[in-house]
Computed example of a mutant assay.
Amino acid sequence: MSSITIPLKLINLQDDGFHLLVEIVIFKQSHLAVLDTGASRSVFDKTLLEQHLTENPSAEEPSTDESYATTLFSTSNTLTATVPVLKLGSLKLKKYAAVGLDLQSVNETYQQLGHPVIAGIIGGDILVQYRGVINYKKLTLKLYK
């Protein structure tokens, strides 16, 4: 069984807690995502999905589904789409069934606190399937193939 170790970034939410950020590659572009062990499902910024799916006619068209995902941040309108490749470190998830949420308010809050914007939230679907282990001392995420 091989493992993949991915570096994490810890950000302080003005002494109101912490978030872990992980680098992801989606649509061949590097972005940051929150690592959220409490999220049942990984989600991505709805605008990012819409932008790339409109530019890429071979990608599946998004469909509306209002009850598909719940995360720490939102339970509003969602869309579903197939992302050709999602990368976390050297892990490549092909034809990933993505859920899109409006992450604008999260990103506005992050920017007000001086943190980078995020493109998504990595949740339990990926963490459970690849037996994710978070090491806070080393600030790493280990996934097992």
Rank of each mutant, 00 (worst) to 15 (best):
S3H: 13
I4F: 11
I4T: 12
L8H: 07
L8W: 08
K9R: 14
L10H: 09
I11S: 04
N12T: 06
L13H: 08
Q14S: 14
D15F: 11
D15R: 10
D16C: 12
D16F: 06
H19V: 01
H19C: 00
H19L: 09
L20V: 02
I24G: 06
I24L: 09
V25N: 08
I26S: 04
F27T: 00
Q29V: 08
Q29H: 12
Q29G: 06
S30E: 13
H31Q: 11
L32M: 14
L32R: 09
A33Q: 01
V34N: 10
V34Q: 10
L35S: 09
L35T: 06
D36K: 04
D36Q: 07
T37I: 12
T37A: 08
G38C: 09
A39W: 00
A39Y: 00
R41A: 14
R41M: 15
S42T: 13
S42M: 06
V43F: 04
F44V: 00
F44Q: 01
D45P: 12
T47K: 13
T47M: 08
T47Q: 15
L48I: 14
L49C: 11
E50S: 12
H52E: 14
H52Y: 15
L53N: 13
T54P: 12
E55V: 02
E55R: 11
N56C: 06
N56D: 11
P57Q: 12
P57G: 11
S58H: 12
E61Q: 14
P62A: 03
S63P: 08
T64M: 08
T64R: 09
D65K: 07
D65L: 10
D65F: 09
D65G: 06
S67C: 10
S67L: 13
T70H: 04
T70S: 10
F73H: 03
S74W: 00
S76R: 03
S76Q: 07
T78S: 15
T78Q: 15
T78Y: 02
T78G: 15
L79K: 03
L79W: 01
L79C: 12
T80Y: 02
A81Q: 07
P84F: 01
V85Q: 14
L86N: 00
L88Y: 00
L88M: 06
G89I: 06
K92D: 09
K94D: 13
K94L: 14
K94Y: 15
Y96N: 03
A98M: 07
A98F: 04
G100T: 03
L101P: 02
D102M: 05
D102E: 12
N107D: 13
E108C: 00
T109S: 11
G114Y: 11
A119N: 05
G120H: 02
I122V: 15
I122P: 07
G124V: 02
G124R: 07
V128Q: 11
Q129T: 10
G132C: 07
I134V: 15
N135S: 05
N135F: 01
Y136P: 10
K138D: 15
K138R: 12
K138I: 09
K138P: 08
L141Q: 05
L143S: 01
L143P: 06
Y144N: 14
K145T: 12
